[in-house]
Simulated assay, not measured.
Amino acid sequence: MARIHTRRRGSSGSDKPVADDPPEWSDVDADAIETRVVELADQGHDPSQIGMKLRDEGVKGTPIPNVKLATGKKLTQILEENDASGEIPEDLYNLLERAVRLREHMDENPQDHQNKRALQNTESKIRRLADYYRGDQLDEEFSYTHDAARELVSD
Rank of each mutant, 00 (worst) to 15 (best):
N115P: 01
V100I: 09
A99G: 02
E87V: 02
D112W: 03
A99D: 03
N115Y: 06
L96A: 08
V100R: 09
A118L: 12
A84H: 02
L102W: 01
E81A: 13
N109P: 05
A118H: 09
L96Y: 10
Q114N: 10
H105I: 04
E90K: 01
N94L: 13
A84N: 01
E97R: 10
N109T: 14
L102T: 03
P89L: 06
L96F: 10
E104C: 02
R98D: 07
K116D: 12
S85K: 07
E104N: 12
G86K: 11
V100C: 09
L119N: 01
N82Q: 09
S85G: 07
E90S: 10
L96D: 03
L95T: 03
E108G: 04
E104H: 11
D91N: 06
V100H: 08
N115H: 08
A118M: 11
Q111M: 14
G86H: 08
E104R: 15
E108A: 15
P110A: 11
L95C: 05
A84C: 00
D112S: 08
A84R: 03
L92H: 04
R103K: 14
P89K: 04
A99Q: 00
D91S: 08
L119I: 04
D83M: 09
P110R: 11
N115R: 12
A118K: 14
D83T: 13
L95G: 05
L119V: 02
N115F: 01
A84Y: 02
P89M: 04
N109Y: 13
E108P: 00
R103S: 13
